[in-house]
Design a protein around this nucleic acid. Sequence first.
DNA 1: TTCGATCGTCACGGATTCCGCAGTTCTGGG
DNA 2: CCCAGAACTGCGGAATCCGTGACGATCGAA
Lengths: 181, 181
Amino acid sequence: MQSEGVASRSADPSSPRGSRTGNPGGGTSGNGAPPVDAVSLAIIEQLQEDGRRPYAAIGKAVGLSEAAVRQRVQKLLDQGVMQIVAVTDPLTVGFRRQAMVGITVEGDLDPVADALTAMPEAEYVVMTAGSYDLLVEIVCEDDDHLLEVINKRIRALPGVRSTESFVYLKLKKQTYMWGTR
Amino acid sequence: MQSEGVASRSADPSSPRGSRTGNPGGGTSGNGAPPVDAVSLAIIEQLQEDGRRPYAAIGKAVGLSEAAVRQRVQKLLDQGVMQIVAVTDPLTVGFRRQAMVGITVEGDLDPVADALTAMPEAEYVVMTAGSYDLLVEIVCEDDDHLLEVINKRIRALPGVRSTESFVYLKLKKQTYMWGTR
DNA sequence: TTCGATCGTCACGGATTCCGCAGTTCTGGG
DNA sequence: CCCAGAACTGCGGAATCCGTGACGATCGAA
């Protein structure tokens, strides 16, 4: 169903192996560049369709042996390039109200962002440049719950100057990238 | 193993770690629609930590046999309550600029929303009530790409009255629910 | 050029897991 | 009370997962 090239559009064939590996000194890490080539991208694509697909099936699809796929997947997971997780439909698990909240802050952003991150209702927290300092996605059971979170908890945080809310009417598209580092 | 095969069906206050998948209605409250009970919620929680965790291990954690877990997982997938997928870090796969764009529209929202949904750079499209009609999350390779998407493609859509952009400075939290229906 | 070292890949065997198939128990109606 | 449906358990057989060792290629340095 989903469009195919979710994460791989524009395969970026330019300089996969950057300038030089340059770690003969023995430093095990030395990892800064995206070490993900077209094959790994294809593996990721397979796992984006089905996170439990057997390695052998993936290998057949991308032209690799089972062991090779296994090691690549393990490395991708270890390096934090991808995660394999279950994602749920908020509605079917009982959450009926979602909203994006734009927040302007007075002073340091970090404490506010951390406090929001700690809230279980905050699904998404990001610092932005624009007329808001922070954007937070809130997932709640119902209107009362949503009101309580926004009005009593978010607006009560020290440093929060103002908030503006956008209640979700209909979610049209949602794909899965993640970038917390 | 299980001394008493009692499937903790109803009351089991020994909730795992309140946070992810917090049960809204306080367990099996007057929530008729969601066909997902506390045990399935616990299973989902296990799979949110590791989408490839073996059924037997999940069963041990939630107090169910391997076969029972397998059947429940299959049903949850069939019913569309959850998906098991790989999620990627945009940065490591070559996308270095993200932004949320608030859009106000003249006339019908649907055609604009559909056009946005069709864009591969649009990671997230939602209709909202508030000072924007639509919120769109854009994932791009660099600033030029982002500028092109916002200025040339989004603002060029018929019906788009205005846009306001929030470039991501730092993503602090990201969890995985999904709700496209 | 030649050597040395690292990385990726392939191959294989044992332990584990997945999967289908009854049989049993529990719940809710008629 | 009896029945029907759903859910859970247990059990093999097949498939998969996982560690280990060896081969070949690439890159840097002498």
